[in-house]
């Protein structure tokens, strides 16, 4: 897959979670790329978690920008 298509695909997965109220909770990076944990509180005040495995370098920049904005707006 072309790099740009891969970026768009991964970005849309992130955007979908953000739209549903998820925020980035934790990021772990290793040789295989970035594992980004998204979290949102549910009605029972428990945290719901989803993890995305991000491969594309542009998407890794993209979620980092989101994370910085999220930390600024805390």
């Amino acid at each position: 897959m072309a790099s740009y298509e891969e970026f768009l695909e991964e970005k849309s997965k992130i955007d979908e979670l953000v739209e549903k109220g998820y925020r980035i909770g934790k990021v772990e990076e290793n040789l295989s790329g970035a594992f980004v944990d998204f979290e949102r509180p549910n009605e029972k005040k428990q945290s719901e978690k989803k993890q995305l495995h991000i491969l594309n370098p542009d998407t890794r920049k993209y979620f980092s920008n989101l994370l910085i904005a999220q930390q600024k707006n805390k």
Binding site: I24, V27, E29, K61, S64, L67, I68, Q71
Partner: peptide
């Protein structure tokens, strides 16, 4: 450096 600091803050 900004990015790594932000990621560190998550942990």
């Amino acid at each position: 450096n900004d990015r790594q600091a932000a990621i560190k803050q998550t942990s």
